[in-house]
Structures are given as C-alpha cells and as structure tokens.
C-alpha cells in the first residue's frame, strides 16, 4: 500500500461512503432489533405499529430527533458543547475502514489495521469527557468522570487480549488474521484463545458503555450521565455513535476470534454479519437481564481479574509460540 494511486483514493472514498451508509442503516436496524429483543425478553410486543413488525419505528424516531430543537444550557461552553457529539461519531466511521467483511468488501487493508482501531477507538472517550465538561451540569460531569476512568481501565485488558491474537498470528492485519483461521468453529481463534475472548467480550461492555457497565449514563443514578443536556441531533449523534461502536467491537471480535467471513460452506460477508449480529444479540440480552454494576465493582473486576489474567494469557501465548 505504499504507492498512492488514484485507485486507492477511489476505493477509500467509495469505502467511506458505503461505511457511513452501513453505520446509519445498522443503527436503525439495531435500534429496532434492540426494542424487539427487549420486547421479547419482557414478554411484550415491542414496536409493532409502523410498517411490518414495526421496522419503520426507527425511521420515525430519526425524523423526530432531526426536527427536535437543540437546547444549550445557559452557561455551557458553546464550541465544545457542539463539538463533542461530532467528535464522538466521526472516528467511528474511520474505524470501520480496516474491517474485512469479506476479501472483496474491505475498504482499506493496512498492515497495522488492528493498531488503527485500537488507537482511534480512544477518541470516543474524549468526546464523553468534553460533553460532560461543557454541559455545565453536575450529573454530566459525574458521567464524564466515570466514563474516562472506566475507559482507561478497560482499554488495557482489551489490548492484552488482542495482543495475544496478534502474537499468535504474527500480524496486525485483520484480513490476514481471518485468512489464517479456518471455516469450521474449531479452527477459530476462540478455541485456541478462549481466555482472550472472554476478556475481550467483558471489556467491550465497559468500552461501549453498555449495561451492566453503563455507568457513564446510569439513568437511575445520574439521570442520563454525560448526555443529560443534549437533545435533538446532539443526542442522536451520541446514540448513533453508541450503536456504531457496538457494531464495531462485535465486528472486530468476529474477525479476531470467530473466523470472520469464513464458514463451513459458502464463504462470504454473510457469515461475517451473522456472527457479528449474534454477538450483538448477546450484548442486548445481557443489557435487558442484568442489574448495573457499582463503580468499585467494575474497577475491581478490571484491575484484579481481567488485567492479571490478560497478562498471564499473553505470557502463556508467548511461551507456547516460542516452544513450538
């Protein structure tokens, strides 16, 4: 990828546009799915009025959010207040670039794809911090403080888990990692690295602020946490970013641990999406079942269990790699 040709630019632009469409479409689908899953778990129908099985409900919501007045608290810092939602959404679009949906559906396949994802996913935290700080609201401030310490804590075990996979395959290129895995479930990394998968899967709940680790929002404690003061599109962008982040971490998990686009037969992006959506379903299932963890519980789990286990796992991987 050293030569900078017109073709590269073309694929990048097409890829970005496709990704933006993918994110927006996915968020719509996921909001609908989340409501249907919640309805199923709570033994109620969920949205069922707009369109077949209520699929147009998310469209109606999006329209409502578009037309809603955007309010700014009187003493809020205007620039940062409006910058924060934009900052939370845009890195996510970039993060989808190196994802290998299939050998053909890959916008950009750099050798350091994994590093790119890990580096840019940190920017989301900055958005949370800025939103909480600029809102001039104590609840928002508490949400932001929680968000930062939580993300700082959970990025390290996440990194350790991912690093073990990179060790094993000797590359940071997501496409190559998928290539080296087989189509059958026992050829996936989840079987060679079950501990890394577990650590990764727990960490992504903290990373994406999903229940049971949704402490920055914690609506029964902090009303709505860092986005308390946001309405209309400001809120919509945070919402979009949350769902895009969920899709992203599940896609990365699919590529790293579940064999990506490969399946027992008919390899293709449908396998990738099916696996990613399976993980998303589990995330929703957890959200509608478990109570919220308290802050010290969350940090204890992270620093006392995930971090040492991640380090041990990395050591064991290195040892095995050296030995064989």
């Amino acid at each position: 990828m050293n030569e900078f040709s017109l073709w590269t630019v073309f694929t990048l632009v097409v890829g970005l546009v496709a990704i933006l469409a993918f994110i927006a479409g996915n968020a719509m689908a996921l909001v609908w799915m989340e409501r249907k899953v919640a309805g199923f778990i709570q033994r109620r129908p969920g949205p069922n009025q707009l369109g077949p099985a209520g699929v147009l409900q998310s469209v109606a919501d999006a329209v409502k959010l578009l037309f809603k007045q955007i309010l700014k608290p009187s003493n809020a810092d205007s620039i940062i207040f409006f910058l924060a939602p934009i900052l939370s959404f845009f890195p996510v679009a970039l993060l989808f670039m190196p994802l290998p949906f299939s050998p053909f559906f890959t916008a950009y396949s750099p050798n350091l794809g994994l590093l790119l994802i890990l580096a840019f996913s940190g920017i989301n935290v900055l958005a949370v911090l800025l939103a909480g700080w600029s809102s001039n609201n104590k609840y928002s401030l508490y949400g932001a403080a929680r968000g930062v310490s939580q993300s700082v804590a959970y990025e390290i075990p996440l990194l350790l888990a991912v690093l073990a996979i990179a060790f094993q395959h000797g590359t940071l290129n997501l496409s190559e990692i998928v290539e080296q895995q087989g189509g059958w479930p026992w050829q996936w990394n989840v079987f060679t690295q079950p501990l890394a998968f577990l650590i990764y899967f727990i960490s992504i709940f903290g990373e994406t602020n999903r229940s049971p680790f949704d402490l920055p929002e914690a609506e029964s404690e902090l009303t709505a946490g860092f986005h308390t003061e946001y309405s209309g599109m400001g809120f919509a962008l945070f919402f979009l970013a949350e769902y895009a982040n969920m899709v992203l971490v599940c896609c990365v998990a699919t590529a790293l641990f579940l064999g990506g686009w490969k399946g027992p037969f008919l390899d293709g992006f449908w396998w990738f999406l099916a696996k990613a959506y399976g993980l998303l379903f589990i995330m929703m299932w957890v959200r509608w079942t478990y109570p919220r963890a308290r802050f010290d519980m969350l940090l204890n789990l992270n620093w006392k269990w995930l971090l040492p286990l991640g380090a041990l796992n990395l050591l064991a991987t290195a040892f095995v790699m050296k030995l064989f």
Binding site: A38, I41, Q42, S220, T289, P291
Partner: peptide, 13 residues
C-alpha cells in the same frame, strides 16, 4: 427497586 439498580426487565414481570 431492581429498576433502580439498573435491570429493566423484572418490573414488567
């Protein structure tokens, strides 16, 4: 109470 603790579903049951 369970809703206060962050779990949505039990109140509907």
């Amino acid at each position: 109470y369970i809703l206060d603790l962050g779990a949505f579903t039990p109140i509907l049951y």
